[in-house]
Design a protein around this nucleic acid. Sequence first.
RNA 1: GCCUGGAUAGCUCAGUGGUAGAGCAACGCACUCGUAAUGCGUAGGUCGUGGGUUCAAUCCCCACUCCAGGCUCCA
Length: 657
Amino acid sequence: MTPQTTVRLPDGSVRDLEVGATGADLAASIGKRLAKDALAVVVDGHETDLSISLPDGASVEIVTPTTSRGRDILRHSTAHVLAQAVLRLWPGAKFAIGPVIEDGFYYDFDLPGGAHFSDDDLVRIEAEMRAIIEEDQPFIREEHGIEEGLTLFAEQPYKSEIIVKVSSGEDEVDALPGATTVSTYRNSELFTDLCRGPHVPSTGRLGHFKLMRVAGAYWRGDVSRPQLQRIYGTAFESKQALEEHLFRLEEAERRDHRVLGAQLDLFSFPDEVGPGLAVFHPKGGIVRRVMEEYSRSRHEREGYEFVYTPHVSKSDLFEISGHLGWYADAMYPPMELDDGQRYYLKPMNCPFHILIYRSRQRSYRELPLRFFEFGSVYRYELSGAVHGLTRVRGMTQDDAHIFCTREQMQAELTSVLSFVLDLLRAFGLQDFYLELSTKPEGKAVGSDEDWSVATETLATVAEGAGLTLVLDEGGGAFYGPKISVQARDAIGRTHQMSTIQLDFQLPQRFEMEYVGADNQRHRPIMIHRALFGSVERFMAILVEHYAGALPTWLSPEQVRVLPVRDDHDAYCRDIARTMTGEGLRVSVDEASEPLGARIRRAKLDKVPYVLVAGDADLENQTVGVNRRGHADPERDVSVAAFIADALRDVANHGIDA
RNA sequence: GCCUGGAUAGCUCAGUGGUAGAGCAACGCACUCGUAAUGCGUAGGUCGUGGGUUCAAUCCCCACUCCAGGCUCCA
């Protein structure tokens, strides 16, 4: 009897193969279609090439292109083709790394003579890549000793550096004691790349890709190291999937809050003011005011007290808080006064709130104290980092600091978390998960015990919320762990919304105290939390989430009334006045233009309700109602019934009860 | 800050080494109309800012300002 290799498939079934059979053989034994689709195999949890012989008794999963693993392999292999194309076009180019990223891949290059890629080069490179794919070059895996690898990549300093790093065991990803061999993939006599793999069997398996853009990127993300030329691209398993992806990008572009903000006359960034500094126009002002008023009323119900603090402060405050030590780079440079005193624009509100706490002696009977402020802060973001309303230099945080005892901490955190989720839901966000950021080793202050108690408390609270919890190991601030609430928007993008952060550092630095029931002095616990994060950024997220069609309660203009003819103007002004009196935001667009043109403009302005009134309406105290998102208008609706309906919509925030 | 690209009328954009053009918007006049663009006319620009080359610069060169996309993803 011939000896056999037995493998187990994910569905639990078992297959017998000849000894030495490869992943490709396995796929072929299952079906013709699978043999054609198979890209790689996962053997006992490790991704590897189809050409590898399968060990007896292994659990094997065949990777196909439509899975996320499959796509990653396609993208990674496409990145190699990109590198080969660049080397053909720029002989002597050095290449660095070419990993898979979300929705695509990139590859970093160092071009001879310090040359740079231009957008036009992408077209040439794509053409070269298509030629390589046409040639159907095999990806051939080879193993080399360290010395051999270094010789092979003698002309490639970045690759050599990687080999040295991997062999010295510094590869933080695998945390291996140090590799003794490295693997390469050879596509042709002229192109071999250092790579862990796996790869598709040959370049002919690729093809549905697009190079997206050129960017500069520092080697290993370190500004002190050489800047490389990065090319971003994406690849999919089919033309259709690629096109769908490109369509999604267009959809995101269509929702861009910067474009919608200008179209809807919400805000602008005048050049005269400076980058990252927004001005809000009357319509944006309404949206913002409604957001803030709602937030205030909710905070009031949750037991917060409202405080106000200045925008500037002497340097002393930020010396004590530690901001000047830790954070000075992100702060605006100081203003120096005649007497030599230095004043800073505030980057955070917390030190001021602490001063309010410290303005007199506090008793345990007062705690928890919750100080809330729409606090405008200024941060000197790098000029290349600012982006619309989402990354700015001046912003307003819905900021609060809770001062409580250790015993109160868990209850406070629990209620803050349920408060924030409830608040975000009221703005129409539905889909959340939580991220727990833990102690950054080596950079943290505070005792291990404090950290572990706080982290466990946050974890308990997060788990209690019944949402998915993702661990962000070492991602906490130096002064304490945090939970952040991530929300998915209407097109599936995730945004970091609220953060809830524990702080051991500031109460100590400011020597905060309260007198306990035991008549002893104790140090309070401090919780930083911002629910919108920043009002500006939250507005941007809402604009994009709703593609500009804000729910009625947030719309700057809720109702627009259109007279059919100018002898209906008076009636329209009259009902508009009535509706304004009921608290609706209403305008009248008088009949100086054809009705069709005014309807069109109202639709483009995304007004939730467009009313039309003509002869019949004037007689019967009715209107024609166009609801945003509905194709057909309703006729002969009584004004009273419309008002009741619109007020209901405003009251429930457009969320069906 | 660094890399790539950009900046022409309020907006979107065309254009040329010989000082500019369209559509939309604005304004005026006419039209008075029942659900996504009525017609005609008028006005609007130091072609981002400052320097340089040139007989001549919006165009070519340099610097600056501002905008967009990157600069976290580990062979």
